[in-house]
Design a protein around this nucleic acid. Structure first.
Lengths: 144, 144
DNA sequence: CTGCATCCCACTTGATACTG
DNA sequence: CAGTATCAAGTGGGATGCAG
């Protein structure tokens, strides 16, 4: 029983295209954008800013285990990519507010899709990990 | 002028939930799954396997700038998470085929969504980077 | 409050060579 | 062909202290 019909996905076509273009890292969105998404903090920060703009320390509280160093750096990357805008209020103790730009907001949909998949699949993934770690590699030895 | 209506996204709700649960890394899909997606190679390999199952060296050719070491490791991670299955054919020169599991195939949709966003936004992101690097921080100095 | 600079360690990754 | 082993280099990230 076929687990899935071998349909030609758009991704497969995309991949052929990238390959044809020589995988130039500068022209490959996957490596330019996906690497950023997986930056351990950036995606989390985008989600943290999804609800409302937040100030620096507010973000720091929202994501407890990020250091100031990484928070600053991640926010700068986000700002550099135009996903987040930075608003400085010259109040007596200076306050800075970060908010998602329209571009940043446009990322929420796709990101939500992936996160939704992650949550739906998490149990299955954990089970697979447990099975794998238990030595159950479930490898098929096909006849030659 | 408001750049975007402050609508309550599902992501925002999700975030509050994670926060309430103390951001336990072991229970947080974002950090467990997204980190893997951003693994620099895994997402690329998933896409490479989207079209059809491939053998080890076939993958190596498909993704030119990955080392054997990283290819092996990435494939093992993928296999461990149950996204990829490994089929060994005991032929004379041994050949091994990797293919997406149903779980792995279920990731293609969300992943395609993100990649689609990346391609659509790539020009804008590059422009933002160029502007930022040119010193145009475009920071708003709001009145106190 | 919001950051930047420095130090430093750990982990990741790549290169190379070797094995079944 | 499909890996594994070892070593060396690069990088990410935390801790701390200082500054505007």
């Amino acid at each position: 029983m076929p687990v899935a019909p071998p349909q030609k996905t758009p991704l497969a076509t995309q991949f052929d295209e990238w390959q044809a273009r020589g995988f130039d890292a500068n022209a490959c969105p996957v490596r330019n954008v996906l690497d950023r998404i997986g930056d351990k903090w950036t995606s989390l920060l985008i989600v943290a800013l999804a609800a409302k703009p937040r100030r620096f320390s507010e973000l720091h509280r929202a994501v407890p285990d990020i250091s100031k160093r990484m928070l600053t750096q991640s926010l700068r990357d986000l700002q550099r990519d135009g996903l987040v805008t930075r608003h400085v209020f010259p109040t007596k103790p200076p306050s800075v507010e970060y908010r998602l730009s329209p571009l940043g907001q446009s990322a929420l949909g796709p990101l939500a899709g992936l996160i939704d998949w992650a949550e739906r699949s998490f149990a299955e993934i954990k089970a697979a990990r447990a099975a794998f770690d238990a030595g159950d590699t479930s490898e098929q030895m096909s006849a030659a």
